[in-house]
Simulated assay, not measured.
Amino acid sequence: MLRKSVVSSFLALSLTLAPTLAAAGEGQECTQGKLTAQAVVDKHVKALGGRERLKAVKTFQLTTVIKEGDTVSTSTLRRVRPNLFRYDLDKNGVKTTKAFDGTQGWTVEGSAAPQRLDKDKNAMLADHALFDEALLDPKARGVTLALDGTEDVNGAPAFKLVLTRGADKEVRYIDQQSHLEVKRIYAGTHEGKAFTKTIAFSDYRSVDGIMVSHQASWDADGKKGEKTVQSARYDAPVDAAVFKLQTPRS
């Protein structure tokens, strides 16, 4: 998800979607004492459910309630391996969809005609649509890993796992006891301006053998929000037709 163009209108989407699974691969091992960044990733993956289980997943569906100030929205996320993606948001009665059909990304708001994404936004969404996130194969995604010591998060020590791609940096805080992610900080530039986004994860529950955060809160440019997972499911059938560019809503 680390791409310079990601920090656009889709950044809010990435914050509310808060990645729920990761997998380990051959990453750059930067040493913190005797511990390596990859060792932390491996412990994290085991805590999530294990590499074999994560790699076996074919589909993922997630329904959430999102609160931002006085606004309450509902969202539905659908993913199919390797890169089919659809996100539907109902905010104050206005429905918005962002989707990627494996080649072309598109968006539609309300009853307006669906719009194909331009080249840059399409590349961004294509990157976001990849089923396995960056920790599966950091090198292939142009991501370098580093372990930057530890820091207390909510009174408990957490490893600081730093992911860097280009000018963008992402810090993931992995709790030392549970080895689950408890906080993430994004930093980069957007339209020439520096930004920092922070999201916290909690209330992990097992869903089909995989640990999923059911509660998240974020602070993005002074705007605070939170999401609560209503339902989550892996490997349920998903009709591939929902990812294709659709006719305008009536």
Rank of each mutant, 00 (worst) to 15 (best):
I185P: 06
F85A: 01
G33N: 15
L77E: 08
V7T: 13
N83E: 02
S111E: 12
G225M: 11
K224S: 12
Q176G: 03
D42C: 03
G105R: 03
C30H: 02
E151A: 06
F131T: 06
V108W: 12
E68H: 02
L62A: 08
T64R: 09
T164K: 15
K98G: 13
S5Q: 09
G102C: 11
K121L: 04
L15F: 10
A113C: 13
S202Q: 01
E26Y: 08
K4R: 13
A232M: 05
A134K: 04
D152H: 09
S178A: 13
A123C: 01
V182F: 07
M211V: 05
D219V: 09
H214I: 13
C30G: 00
D168A: 09
L15T: 07
G192Y: 07
D219W: 02
R233H: 15
T189K: 15
A134V: 03
D148R: 14
G222I: 06
L163N: 04
A140M: 08
D137C: 15
K4C: 09
S75A: 14
R141M: 15
K95S: 05
R249E: 11
V6F: 04
K55V: 11
T36G: 07
K183C: 08
W106V: 05
C30L: 09
G225T: 10
A241L: 01
Y204G: 11
F201M: 14
W106K: 03
A56M: 00
V65E: 14
K34E: 10
S73V: 01
P237T: 00
R53T: 13
G142P: 10
K193E: 08
L180Q: 14
R172N: 02
L62H: 01
I199Y: 11
S250M: 13
